[in-house]
């Protein structure tokens, strides 16, 4: 029983992390056609700024993480304004995000007072607080509960924005048919900043939620980003619900393999590839033609 609950909770925890990252990437991809490789890197920057303010400069926790997320949003806006907009092709912008990712990941080692370090302890005020699960010798930490809550909130919020607001309508219009959207008077220049700011902010938020559970470091978010990227495949880089489903499936499979089949070495790491093959076969069986990028060129 305990083992099952463990599997479910840990699976959900990592599923939430993959979901948050994958949603951010899908959001950018479907509206701008850019694969945002820098997603993990932005989180690292935001996390270290928040840690800097909180630990080194004595800011209270919430203003510090707020500032970190704001920096991430601002970085998104600046990146869109000064770099993405200058590049005609989304593929070039994809490469620009790659460059940004390298730059940001390296930044941690460049800022001298960040201690030239792989990781830092960045506790939330809820550190060491748990909720015991009745009937099982197990507990969930407050930090984990906050992570679950945020994923739900964000998913609902994004769904609401896309379905019920004008900005969301514009975003969907642009992603479905940019030419038609332009003819309808929707301006990519207004949609793009919103998307980039939102995505970068989301990456910052992910770090803030993750850092108290793990550590604040400059590599694990990258590793998660790579895995999340394989998850986006499930939703064809378009569907948000399918992406979340893929994320939770992947992490459940990984965790249950590790806990129930610990002797099958390597299986848990093969899941992204195996899922990919299953999705591919499923699409093939449905007669879908070769999966091709349908995203569009911005104006």
């Amino acid at each position: 029983m305990t083992k099952l609950i463990q599997t479910l909770i840990i699976g959900l925890e990592y599923g939430c992390v993959y979901s948050l990252i994958a949603m951010g990437m899908v959001l950018v991809y479907r509206t701008t056609g850019v694969l945002n490789i820098a997603h993990g890197g932005i989180g690292v920057l935001a996390g270290f700024i928040a840690w800097d303010l909180n630990t080194l400069r004595g800011w209270p926790y919430f203003p510090a993480i707020g500032a970190g997320i704001l920096v991430a949003v601002a970085a998104g806006l600046l990146f869109e304004r000064f770099i993405v907009r200058r590049l005609a092709a989304p593929a070039l912008a994809t490469v620009a995000t790659l460059a940004l990712f390298l730059l940001l990941q390296g930044l941690v080692f460049v800022v001298p007072w960040w201690g030239n370090t792989w990781g830092q302890v960045f506790n939330s005020p809820f550190a060491n607080k748990q909720v015991a699960i009745p009937g099982a010798d197990y507990s969930v930490s407050w930090d984990q509960l906050i992570l679950f809550g945020n994923v739900l909130l964000f998913f609902a919020g994004l769904y609401f924005i896309l379905r019920r607001t004008r900005v969301g309508l514009a975003m969907r219009a642009v992603s479905d048919d940019p030419t038609a959207a332009r003819l309808m008077g929707i301006r990519q220049k207004l949609v793009a900043p919103v998307v980039w700011g939102l995505a970068f902010g989301l990456s910052g938020l992910t770090t803030m939620l993750l850092a108290p559970i793990l550590l604040l470091d400059n590599t694990s978010l990258t590793a998660f980003t790579l895995k999340a990227l394989t998850v986006t495949f499930v939703g064809g880089l378009i569907s948000l619900p399918l992406t979340v489903l893929g994320a939770i499936t992947l992490s459940m499979l990984e965790v249950s393999t590790q806990l129930y089949l610990p002797n099958v070495k390597g299986l848990s790491d093969a899941w992204p590839f195996l899922i990919l093959i299953v999705v591919l076969v499923a699409r093939f069986a449905r007669g879908t033609k070769a999966l091709e990028d349908t995203a569009v060129a911005p104006a």
Binding site: T2, Q6, T7, G119, V121, Y138, I213, L214, L259, P262
Partner: peptide
């Protein structure tokens, strides 16, 4: 998680302080 289900009495590590800290925090969270 596995250590708990396998009823382990000792965890030994060959780690650096960073990953070790993560391990200990994880144990505390669980």
């Amino acid at each position: 998680a596995q250590a708990r289900t396998q009823n382990i009495d000792t965890i030994s590590t060959y780690l650096d302080p960073g990953i070790f800290t993560r391990l200990v925090r994880e144990a505390a969270a669980q």
